[in-house]
Amino acid sequence: MNALVKVLVLCCFSIGAWANEVPLEKVNVATDAVTISRGAEDLMNDCHSCHTLKYIRYRDLVAFGIDKQKVDAWRGDQAMDSPLLGQFSDADAMQSFGIVPPDLSLMVKARDGGSSYVYSYLLAYHNSPDGVLENPVYPATKMPDALGIASATDAAQRTEIQGRARDIVSFLTWAADPHDAERKRLGYYVLGYLIVLTTLLYFVKNQIWGRLK
C-alpha cells in the first residue's frame, strides 16, 4: 500500500507539468497596499472606461486602504456602495468592439494560468510585419492594446509598461479574492494549532496503546 502513496505523490507533481499552448510570462504579483493602489489607479485610467468590476464597491477600495480622495474622484456622484460599473453601455460596446467587454472582478481566477495569463496577455500585443496588431496569447481578442506595448520601442518605456501591467494584475488578483491575505494569515494559525494538537494526540495514542501487553 505504500507504493500507492508514492504513485499518488508522483501524480500530483505531474499535474503541474501539463503544458500550456502559449508559454506564459510568469509574474509575481504584489500583495502590498502601495502596489495594489497604484494598480487600481492604472486600472481606472486604462481599463475601467470599458470594463466593469461588479463585485467590487468603491467602499471596498477605501476599506482596503486606497486614498479616499482618489476613490471620491473616481466615483464622481456615484454612491460609496455602488459597484465599479463601466462608463460604457453594453450597446455602445457592441457597436464599437462587437463584444461586451468582460467583467474583470474574477478575471485572474477565470483563466488557466491566472495572474500570469492576464500579465502575458496585456504584454503580448505586437505589430505583425504587415502592421496588423496581434496578440498570440488570445488571438481572437477584440481589445485594443490598452497599455501601448506594441508601439513602445525603447527599453525604458517597455519596462515602465511592464511595471504598470504588474500593478494592474496585482490589483486584479486582490479584486478576485479580497480575503486572500486574511485567509493565508489564518491558515498559519490553523496549521500551527493542528500540528500541536496532532503531536499531543500522538503521545496520548502511544500512552494508551502502551497499556497493551
Binding site: L191, T198, L201, K205, W209
Partner: peptide, 15 residues
C-alpha cells in the same frame, strides 16, 4: 484515539 490521531493528519492536509 488512533482515529483521532489520524484525523489530525487529515486535517493538516485538508487545511
Amino acid at each position: 484515539i488512533k482515529d483521532l490521531y489520524g484525523l489530525g493528519w487529515f486535517l493538516i492536509v485538508y487545511s
